[in-house]
Amino acid sequence: AHSQSHLPSHFMKGAIIQLATGELKRVEDLQTQDFVRSAEVSGGLKIDSSTVVDIQESPWQGFVTLHFVVGEQQSKVSIDVPPEHPFFVYGQGWSSCSPERTNRLFSLSCHRLQVGDVCISISLQSLN
């Protein structure tokens, strides 16, 4: 038995992703516009631009801490993720702190996530 059942299979190459438009795409075929359009047609969610401002070793062993500034408010948000966790970078596509691990675990081709990269994130749309 493999001990990899905890891995999120939605990042596995070939995983089928449903866009908010109903369209189905493979995870490796997604493009920036797919996320932007999905957020447009899905009520309540909006896309934020989240810029990586720092990448550090996490106090949690085997994790990295990513520091972002998020959205128009430039809010500071930090998250701890495993180094193979992919993020979608505007105009570039899937990127992770360890493209080698992402490729090994998910067969997903990635760029290396770097400070200055602008990732797609979501948040709740505020009602005006």
């Binding site: 939605h10 089928i16 449903q18 989240s50 972002f68 408010q73 500071k76 948000v77 990732c119 948040s123």
Partner: peptide, 25 residues
């Protein structure tokens, strides 16, 4: 009728992080 084979379909928003500011600066 053929029983449809179950294929996992994941929603687009499961792929991107939900980054909501926890507190205003």
């Amino acid at each position: 009728n053929v029983e449809p084979r179950s294929v996992a379909v994941f929603p687009w928003h499961s792929l991107v992080p939900f980054l909501a500011p926890s507190q205003p600066d």
